[in-house]
Amino acid sequence: MKKALIIGITGQDGSYLAELLLDKGYEVHGLIRRASTFNTSRINHLYQDRHDGSPRLLLHYGDLSDGSRLVSLIAELQPDEIYNLGAQSHVRVSFDEPEYTGDITGVGTTRVLEAVRLVSPQSRFYQASSSEMFGATPPPQNEETPFYPRSPYGAAKVYSYWMTKNYREAYGLFAVNGILFNHESPRRGETFVTRKITRAAAKIKAGLQSKLYLGNLDAVRDWGYTPEYVEGMWRMLQHDKPMDYVLATGHAATIRDFLDYTFEHIGLSWQDYVDFDSRYLRPTEVDALIGDASLAERELGWKAQTLTPDLAKIMVEADVEALSHEGSHWIDKPKFL
């Protein structure tokens, strides 16, 4: 039985990846930060025992700012695979907290890599890189496209990307970068624009909200469906050779388009409800991110199946359904066992 450690297991990507690995028979360990409130809502449905009575999922307290804890935990677990999905991941917030973003999103990766090098060099390591690293470089963007980050978040991810490559080349680690373009789901955080839109649309439809305030509606993004993307992460670590890959749909949509797809699906016109708010603008904007995932299709057999129109429908239907379940912050029809 393979053993995996997921750093950032309570996030959108971490929860779907945990599901995937458990379905494949892995023993899954997750690193979570200590908080005064429960923050495991996305993975609560995964708590069930294996047939032999041992736990399927084990959580450990720790933080990307604490290198000694990372060393001790990885030394204890000796995982076959480590997925670093942890980060301060909100691009707009990174302008307000650039130092914290650099420490967690950037230097945090080095702490994990150093722990792997010191105590578990046989572990295969996945680094969650981001299309935000491309920033101002015109699309389409692939593995050979130069980076030009336009935010502290993007700059921190570029640092993590090069440190991952450096540890691979300097120490022979099986370490890969997955350069994922935007990927969304009903489990997306409510402050991210796609979920903000679908959640607001559901509440407007139900008469619980009257307005939605957004910033730049002309930004072009390549939006895919998260469950498909975590499959791509896993495939990268099963390949014979450590390589870096772009995962993307190759299809472009603006935020206006996402509004169209969402509101049309529930029979409303978004122009009646959406107003501009300059507070949501970034100091430096990223105009267009459109990925070319040809290498992943060729080497890994991976290809995105869900495009933006269907993704918007999946998300808004889930948010409409969530409103009928008091206390639900997200819904993906989990089975609590």
Rank of each mutant, 00 (worst) to 15 (best):
Y100C: 02
W270I: 00
V230S: 06
T109C: 14
P283C: 10
V28G: 03
L247E: 00
R195M: 11
L57T: 05
L22A: 14
F147H: 10
W223S: 07
G25E: 11
Y26N: 06
G102S: 14
D257N: 12
P242V: 05
Y273K: 03
S68A: 15
E19T: 14
T194M: 14
L237C: 03
G25V: 09
Q238T: 12
M315T: 01
T145V: 04
Y229L: 06
Y167I: 05
N142P: 02
S131G: 08
P98L: 10
S294Q: 01
A200Y: 09
S72E: 14
L237D: 01
T226G: 02
D222C: 11
V230C: 07
Y161F: 13
D96G: 05
P55Y: 14
K205I: 00
V246R: 01
G267I: 03
H183Y: 04
L214P: 08
G154T: 05
E97V: 08
K303D: 05
R42S: 08
Q238A: 10
I314Q: 04
A296R: 01
S160M: 02
I7C: 10
L70N: 06
T105S: 15
I255R: 00
Y159C: 02
R235N: 07
L268W: 00
G232N: 02
E326H: 15
F125G: 02
G224P: 04
L323M: 08
A175H: 07
G11Q: 07
K157T: 04
D222I: 00
L300H: 10
L59G: 08
L237E: 07
T194K: 04
L22G: 12
I74P: 02
R168E: 03
N142T: 02
Q209R: 15
Y61L: 14
H325K: 15
V316I: 09
Y83L: 09
G267E: 00
G250F: 03
D218S: 11
H29S: 07
G135H: 12
K313A: 07
G301V: 09
R188M: 09
V246L: 07
A35I: 02
K203N: 03
A35S: 12
S89F: 09
L311W: 06
T164V: 04
V28K: 12
S123R: 03
E81R: 11
Y126T: 03
T249N: 03
R33W: 08
D63H: 11
E297Y: 11
V119E: 06
L295D: 00
L64K: 13
D275Y: 04
T198N: 09
N216P: 02
V28T: 11
F134K: 01
